[in-house]
Design a binder for these strands. Structure first.
Length: 443
RNA sequence: GCGGGGAUGGCCCAGCGGUACGGCGGCAGCCUGCUAAGCUGUUUCUCGAAUGAGAGCGAGGGUUCGAAUCCCUCUCCCCGCGCCA
């Protein structure tokens, strides 16, 4: 959540940031109304309590000296009923204010492009020589500022759905029956490929100073509410019936919550953590999009980068985690572009976000495979994660980025490295030590 | 799941109906040539421009003029027992 004190101090900054995001600023008006009443109420309550404390002390005194205390007792009872009713009102105000404050998005970084839809996303750079079918050349060039390099294909690449069926790598129909749409049974060498990707990402990040963590796959409300926002709750989280537990939608959340209410020594920052977990997502509102295959699914495995750091360095670390993700895709030889995501498309937590979009030759477009965000102190404040300084405790900054979301990367590999006769899929060289094979053949 | 013991400031710990003791660490200052030691003060949150006031003893209720302390419910941790891949 945002800093209430700062909101009181500099309301205009929050109004302009909210406007750029397309966030309804009447919410901010409501906050200030409630906050004013809250402070007035607090003053009254504290004055009454002060009086009560004085009387209580004089009762104590009177009892020692054998004075009369009946009248004093009556006065305290009167004060108590006043205090009770004011505190009841105060609780209501606090709850309402809390609900509102939690919806107020993080302040945008200056470099975030302002927009409504995703049209103003800024392409920062692109990498690789893409395989582009002749009909998709315009799309590819327009998506790379006309400077993207490519190999022209005169044959239409097959979709990953067709490839998986042809090569017996997944069973989607049976998954539909036993679990529902957007689920899958992975099979054979695709399972090995997934394990290889997970292993590869874990090794890659370990070598770059990350501690590897496999987190709980469920969180209680308090941890989840601290690590996420209401949009995530509404649209993506699965709840366990009858328990205070939610299935995680990314290991970002359990890892952020891992240090809930803790205080780091400054010397222990930055703390780099690589999270490995399945991710469960409702994908509400995604009807009609990517209904086939494993591109958009309710359950997938992801290796995530997470960093707790000193506030002065978080923008450097955003470059670091984005760089790590890029290095992974370069090592896999998957062409991609980096996008600076515009204000209207940002989540509430992120002050700035870069997406990496890989080129998918069968779909003929760039699509999101990585999201790298700096949440500044927003998530840390909700979770109470601080570090010690000689001038008191300050909130850390938190950052997160995908390293590898296995399903999407497997789709990218299938689409980019399929043999032109549909006979199989080549495995990127960097993965071969992990898979133990360099090709997925047909039967 | 059953029994027993716990949860107090950054950390350790006392208090067990009269408003949170002491230590360690941190910070500021004093003091010796430096360091160590020693001495003094300070150390959480909220409101307030400020003198200041309020809150805070795992969480939530209750009894009382007054609750860290007594009562009830819950959470988590430790030690046994049970169950278990």
């Amino acid at each position: 959540m945002i800093d209430i004190k700062y909101l009181r101090e500099k309301p205009e900054i929050f109004y302009s940031s909210s406007k750029a995001r397309g966030f309804d600023t009447t919410t901010l008006d409501k906050f200030f109304d409630l906050d004013r009443e809250w402070r007035e109420n607090l003053k009254k309550i504290n004055d009454l309590k002060h009086r009560k404390n004085q009387i209580t002390a004089s009762i104590s005194e009177a009892m020692k000296n054998g004075g009369d205390i009946q009248a004093l007792k009556e006065e305290v009872k009167g004060l108590n009923s006043n205090i009770d009713s004011l505190e009841e009102r105060q609780k209501i105000i606090e709850t309402e204010r809390e609900v509102i404050v939690r919806t107020i998005p993080n302040l945008l970084h200056d470099s975030v492009p302002v927009c409504k839809g995703d049209e103003n996303n800024v392409v920062v750079r692109h990498w690789g020589v893409a395989s582009v079918f002749r009909d998709d050349v315009d799309e590819y060039l327009n998506s790379t500022g006309k400077t993207g390099q490519y190999t022209l294909l005169d044959w239409k690449p097959q979709s990953h759905v067709d490839l998986m069926q042809k090569l017996d790598l997944a069973d989607l129909e049976r998954a539909g029956r036993s679990a529902g749409s957007r689920f899958f049974y992975l099979k054979n060498r695709l399972v090995k490929l997934e394990l290889a990707l997970a292993n590869y990402a874990v090794d890659f990040l370990s070598e770059r100073g990350f501690n590897v963590v496999e987190p709980p796959y469920m969180l209680n409300y308090r941890a989840m509410a601290g690590a996420t926002d209401m949009d995530t709750f509404k649209d993506t989280l699965y709840k366990i019936e009858g328990e205070d537990l939610y299935l995680i939608s990314t290991s970002e959340h359990p890892i952020a919550a891992m240090y809930m209410d803790e205080i780091f020594e400054e010397s222990s920052l930055p703390l780099r953590i690589a999270g490995l977990s399945p991710c469960f997502r409702k994908e509400a509102g995604a009807h009609g999009k990517d209904t086939k295959g494993i591109f958009r699914v309710h359950q997938f495995t992801k290796i995530e980068q997470f960093i707790f750091c000193h506030p002065d360095h978080s923008w450097d670390f955003l470059e670091e985690i984005l760089g790590n993700a890029e290095a992974i895709f370069q090592s896999l030889k998957i062409p991609y572009r980096v996008v600076n995501v515009c204000s209207g498309e940002l989540g509430n937590l992120a002050a700035k976000k870069f997406d990496i979009e890989a080129w998918f030759p069968a779909q003929g477009k760039f699509r999101e495979v990585v999201s790298a965000s700096n949440d500044t102190d927003y998530q840390a404040r909700s979770l109470g994660i601080r570090f010690r300084t000689k001038d008191g405790n300050r909130f850390v900054h938190t950052l997160n980025s995908t390293a590898i979301a296995t399903t999407r990367v497997m789709v990218a590999i299938m689409e980019n490295f399929q043999a032109n006769d549909g006979s199989g899929i080549k495995i990127p060289e960097a993965l071969v030590p992990y898979t133990g094979f360099d090709f997925i053949p047909g039967n």
